[in-house]
Write a protein that binds this DNA or RNA. Structure first.
Length: 199
DNA sequence: AGCACGATGCTCT
DNA sequence: GAGCATCGTGCTT
């Protein structure tokens, strides 16, 4: 297969929209990672929106810092940060440049390079924001890369259509000390691959 | 199947 | 020095 026939990664315009829209539409999309020259991919099954300095659950709530600077970058860039002393988290930056917002990719269903992914995970699940980055070899070296440039080895492609009735919407995970109303904003989107297949 | 807890290091006050 | 947008283990029901 020649390269011009390969699926094209989602363009910057996809990300340059309201974060809730992007988060919802990333469900079913295909997260692609070229690792050691091998293509690995998974369908995104869970995503959360973090929206601006007003959102007290968002890293940008106290303004721009060294860590969150990429959230202020143009849409379509990867914000990858380190937490809990051992975990990397992958976000896709959204909205206009200068407005800090992003979608946290929280789970994937492996569809390409499944054997490699399974081996990298030691046979364990790939659902979970730190699990998928470990599965796909995503770490701080990818912070700030352009998801619309295939040369980075990390991008998102169009994938499966996920009907509205399959989507579950609820509060974001892990915001234990974040005050209301931000703690309970229904900005988490999920669906189950198993349910999609039954139809 | 669910809950408690320890691991482990970076970021910002 | 406190607090993490978490995970895996081990123990209890």
């Amino acid at each position: 297969m020649t390269s011009h026939l390969l699926p094209i990664g989602l363009r910057q315009e996809f990300y340059a929209r309201p974060t809730l829209t992007v988060a919802r539409e990333l469900l079913g999309a295909r997260l692609v990672r070229i690792l050691d020259g091998v293509r690995l991919a998974g369908i995104i099954t869970e995503a959360e929106a973090y929206i601006g300095e007003e959102d007290l659950g968002c890293h940008a709530h106290a303004g721009k810092t060294k860590r969150n600077a990429v959230m202020f970058a143009p849409p379509g860039h990867a914000y990858v940060y380190f937490t809990y002393g051992m975990h990397w988290m992958l976000n896709a930056v959204t909205e206009a440049e200068g407005f800090p917002a992003a979608v946290l990719i929280r789970a994937i269903w492996p569809v390409e390079g499944v054997e490699i992914i399974t081996a990298r995970r030691n046979g364990r699940d790939t659902g979970g924001p730190a699990r998928l980055t470990q599965a796909l070899g995503i770490d701080g070296a990818l912070n700030g890369v352009d998801l619309c440039d295939p040369a980075t080895g990390l991008w998102i492609e169009a994938g499966l259509p996920v009907p509205a009735e399959s989507v579950t919407i609820g509060p974001r995970v892990g915001l234990y000390t974040v005050p209301e109303p931000w703690k309970s904003k229904p900005w988490r989107f999920t669906f189950r691959m198993e349910e999609l297949w039954v139809c």
